[in-house]
Design a protein around this nucleic acid. Structure first.
Length: 927
RNA sequence: GCGGAUGUGGCGGAAUUGGUAGACGCGCUAGACUUAGGAUCUAGUACCGAAUAAGGUGUGGGGGUUCGAGUCCCUUCAUCCGUACCA
């Protein structure tokens, strides 16, 4: 008998599969049903993959193998989201070109993918940093640049149709998504515009446009970050502080799509939590924009947005964001130092500080009033940093009686409070925010219910021409510029007029130039400023910023359908065949970033007629994280002294993650720790019982926490099959679960047992010798087939594996097993443990390959029960079990149960009121 | 605050439509084989019941519906994730 030498078996099959790839014909060559599986695009990081990363990959591999066994045309591609910050940071430190390090990392990833037996379609591999790929990313950008959004048809259209309209009707009547301050012009004016003026007036309509915006500026990274790249006021990558800064940036007009992005979310088969997250992120609110006249001014007005217009009679003051133009106007008028100071202070504050310091209590009176549109009462205008400049109109009407923030503000500055909805909440208890009750103190609204008043006041405001019903979204247009080198260059150049112009399509790709320095230049311009001749042949300079990391990943699922096409981003026929991604697997951390952007780009490409789908991902699945214990030491703040776990209470300490290898049973190897980093060489320790005890925390595996488990070592020790099996056996795929190395012994043992069982037998002869398969073996085989198929289809891989174990435990006690039975067993095992399955199959079938053999099917007839062992309960408590044939009439069952000794004993003296008999389930007697 | 998810043995976790709670695996206990075992095999393993008995208790807590609840309803607590002055 050969020993189970998984290392050589796995190496052998890796070689065979590499050669075979593409050469195995599918079960049905003519237009088989397709199945498009997709893993989220990995960024090839320098630290390689850890075991947790493999969870999703192995899961998709199981599905791919399963559906291939079923004759599906399965696409399960893999590629690399190769542009990104870490490679560039590394380039800044070392001067090595990011492409080189990225290439090395990709090769490493590929090796790790191969090792664990992932059957990806490598001929479709994508690399976003490859000019052949980013040519099309740039092409899509041009589509965005050359399109506008028509709110009447709710569709993007080529910019030419907009020009057409401008020529005939100007822009007064166009219902387009555009900048708020877009100037109005007539057809005549348009025609009189110079080409530059026309270009300038088109810009605010483009789906990709330039605008000054307050951005998240990260000094340390030297770039702008998107909202979701900022966590707690720090950059997600590296954790550097982020400040606010006004810069001219490319932005994408995603807000135009907010309504569709929200509405189309509903039918998707996505985790509820992710849908909710996207809904909240898009943040739809219905309300009214109301214009208030400034007292003593003939033309100045202040617009507010409110979702509670019915409370208009409860307005006691106005609050503007300090950034509001009227605030600057008044500051200039009054030269009030407090006001100027407050505006200045807010401007320089980071978002984070603004949140921490602002408790709704700071603000300055502007010394101006607006007039209430119905009562004419003057309302004081204040500025306060609790009003955000970017949401709504950057101004609110203060209704302290029915809004908690306004209430707090009113309290702080002793402003009046006026209730307009009847409630039994006393005025000093805070705002009554519920949207129910009867209107009071509200003139024409008195006596109406809140919803009725809402409708009524909108009518009234609209009629009087001072308010409009509006739907507002919280979501902002994402900024698309990064002041970085390692990204897609914009196919944009600037003429003397300072305006952006698009490169012609046939000029693509615009290849990222070489630079000798990856940092900004002395004027703070992005790294591309170092590139020589970074201009068109006519000498017009190219855009210096590059696209963000999510550009390439917003459409890659389309490119996999037709990865080598040089004429189009995807051939229409290919796109029609593969259609949508049937099953998308990846982490939930992309809920509001990638998953939203990809949906947005899909809709744009759909509107412009390049593809026929409006949603990219039909079904989405988030694999859970693999957690791992990290080790913690406690450093006393501002000292190089560490205090042991149980003594740390009395000190102000900072927990420091250290490599788990330094810790044995919570005891720290102090020498190892001192040698770890120079700054700890002189560290001192406060011990307990002569030892330093570390703390531990179960958390997500990450390099920074030093708690990663490297799959290479696990594979070397137990084999890839055992690791695959273990990762899937741990628990439900979608749940996070802790990594426990001792657990892998179980799956490893199982594979060893399977190996011995198959190897020990001579399948050429035993097949004849025991042609008879016992009834219960047949039955459990069919049960297992049914169970495994169902479990795979519902991604319940842990239960599939346990049923395989149950099946095998049954087989292993049989003296003889028919070849057909073990054949089915190996086939069922194959998606989970492909190496051992291939090897054993080859042994049984002398060289035949398992990959495209049809998956076993079950026959329901074998699962029928002829008799059933009924649990018999009295008042719901199990007392005994009795066997009855399936055709035994209820009356006989009842009689026999009542005659049973044990039941008689329990029933002694009690009258049976009712006997519940549920066929093939249970019997319950009620007394 | 708001939104979402999860609570079952020592541990990871099973349990179609409500119908034998704890499958499967880890760990542990005992035994067998062995020079040895961190290899392998056999048996046991929710808890209380001193105990392999009778019996009782048990799916975060409390209540309810039902012949019957881990599963359905109400309520409450804890943990995790996301989000945060969004007017």
């Amino acid at each position: 008998m050969r020993p189970y030498n998984f290392t050589s078996i796995e190496e052998k099959w890796q070689k065979i599969w590499k050669k075979q790839k593409g050469s195995i014909p599918h079960a049905s060559p003519q237009q088989p049903p397709k199945y498009y599986l997709l893993n989220m695009f990995p960024y090839p990081s320098g630290s390689g993959l850890h075991v947790g990363h493999h969870t999703g990959y192995v899961a998709s591999d199981i599905l791919a193998r399963y559906y291939r066994h079923q004759g599906y045309q399965v696409m399960n591609p893999m590629g690399f989201d190769a542009f990104g910050l870490p490679a560039e940071q590394y380039a800044i430190q070392t001067g090595r070109h990011p492409a080189i390090t990225t290439g090395i990392n990709i090769a490493r990833y590929r090796e790790q993918f191969d090792q664990i037996g992932l059957d990806f379609d490598w001929d479709k591999q994508i690399d976003t940093s490859d000019p052949a790929y980013y040519k099309w990313t740039q092409w899509i950008f041009l589509q965005l640049f050359n399109a506008w959004y028509n709110h009447t048809t709710e569709k993007a259209e080529p910019i030419a149709t907009l020009i057409e309209r401008f020529t005939h009707q100007g822009n007064h009547t166009i219902n387009a998504a555009c900048d708020e301050d877009t100037p109005l012009f007539s057809a005549e004016e348009w025609k009189r515009f110079s080409p530059s003026e026309q270009q300038a007036n088109l810009l605010p309509y483009r789906l990709a446009y330039l605008k000054y915006s307050t951005v998240n500026w990260c000094e340390a990274l030297g770039t702008v970050l998107a909202n979701e790249e900022v966590k707690n006021g720090c950059s997600e990558v590296g954790g550097y502080p982020v400040t606010r800064k006004k810069m001219k940036q490319w932005s994408l007009r995603m807000t135009a799509y907010a309504g569709r992005l929200l509405a189309d979310l509903n039918p998707l088969d996505w985790p509820l939590s992710t849908k909710e997250m996207q809904k909240n992120w898009i943040g739809r609110s219905e309300g009214v924009e109301i214009t208030f006249k400034v007292q003593g001014s003939s033309d100045q007005t202040i617009k507010v947005f409110t979702t509670r217009p019915e409370t208009i009679f409860g307005v006691c003051f106005m609050v503007l964001a300090p950034e509001h133009p009227f605030a600057s106007f008044m500051a200039a008028q009054t030269a009030n130092p407090m006001l100027i100071d407050y505006i200045e202070k807010t401007k320089n504050q980071t978002d984070r500080n603004r949140l921490i310091e602002a408790t709704g209590c700071s603000g300055v009176f502007l010394d101006a009033y607006v007039m209430h549109p119905f009562t004419g009462v003057p309302l004081p205008i204040w500025i306060a940093d609790y009003v955000l400049p970017d949401y709504g109109t950057g101004a609110i009407m203060g209704v302290p009686a029915h809004d908690n923030r306004d209430y707090t503000f009113a309290q702080a500055f002793k402003l009046p409070v006026m209730a307009v909805i009847e409630s039994n909440k006393p005025p000093e208890a805070g705002a009554y925010e519920a949207q129910e009750g009867i209107m009071i103190n509200s003139s024409l609204l008195n006596g109406l219910s809140v919803p009725m008043a809402f409708e009524r006041i909108i009518q009234e405001l609209t009629q009087k021409g001072i308010g409009n019903y509006r739907v507002r979204y919280k979501v902002r247009d994402p900024i698309f510029s990064r002041q970085r080198y390692w990204g897609e260059p914009f196919p944009i150049y600037y003429k003397e007029d300072g305006l952006p112009y698009a490169l012609a399509e046939d000029q693509l790709p615009l290849v990222l130039p070489a630079v000798n320095n990856y940092k900004p230049n002395q004027f703070g311009e992005p790294p591309l400023s170092h590139a020589l001749d970074w201009a068109t042949p006519a000498g017009y300079p190219f855009e210096l910023t590059t696209m963000p990391g999510w550009a390439g990943s917003s459409w890659y699922f389309l490119r996999y359908m037709d990865p080598h096409n040089t004429h189009a981003l995807v051939d229409k026929k290919q796109a029609a065949y593969w259609n949508q991604v049937d099953f998308y697997i990846g982490g939930s951390e992309h809920a509001t970033g990638h998953l939203l952007y990809a949906r947005f780009w899909t809709k744009v490409l759909y509107d412009l007629g390049h593809i026929d789908i409006e949603e990219p991902f039909l079904k989405l699945f988030h694999q859970g994280m693999i957690l791992s214990f990290s080790a913690l030491a406690y450093r006393i703040k501002d000292k190089n002294e560490f205090v042991s776990f149980n003594l740390k209470e009395g000190y102000d300490v900072v927990a420091i993650h250290l490599p788990t290898t330094f810790v044995q049973k919570n005891v720290l190897d102090i020498e190892a720790f001192k040698n770890w980093r120079p700054e700890f060489a002189e560290a001192t320790f406060i011990l307990e019982n002569g030892q330093y005890l570390c703390g531990s925390k179960l958390e997500k595996m990450s390099k920074s926490k030093h708690n990663v488990v490297n799959p290479d070592t696990v594979i070397a020790q137990h084999g890839a099959d055992a690791l695959r099996l273990y990762l899937m056996f741990l628990g439900p795929l979608e749940e996070s679960k802790p990594w426990d190395l001792s657990g892998i012994e179980g799956t490893s043992r199982f594979l060893h047992k399977v190996w011995r069982f198959v190897e020990e037998r001579d399948w050429a002869t035993t097949a004849d010798a025991s042609a008879d398969t016992s009834e219960d073996v047949t039955k459990i085989m069919h049960q297992t087939i049914k169970k495994v198929r169902g479990a795979i289809e519902s991604c319940s891989f842990n239960t599939a594996i346990s049923s395989l174990m149950i099946f095998f435990n049954k087989l292993s006690v049989q003296e003889r097993v028919e070849k057909m039975v073990i054949e089915n067993f190996i086939l069922l095992l194959e998606p989970f443990a492909p190496y051992i399955a291939a090897e054993l199959w080859e042994r049984i079938y002398n060289g035949e390959h398992i990959k495209t053999v049809a998956f076993p099917t079950w026959d329901e007839a074998y699962l029928m029960e002829t008799s059933y062992l009924y649990p018999v309960a009295i008042n719901g408590k199990l007392r005994t079990k009795l066997m009855f044939d399936g055709d035994t009439p209820d009356t006989i069952i009842e009689k026999e149960v009542l005659a049973n000794e044990i039941i008689k004993k329990w029933l002694s003296g009690q009258k049976v009121k009712k006997v519940v008999i549920v066929r093939n389930k249970m019997i319950n007697m009620v007394t």
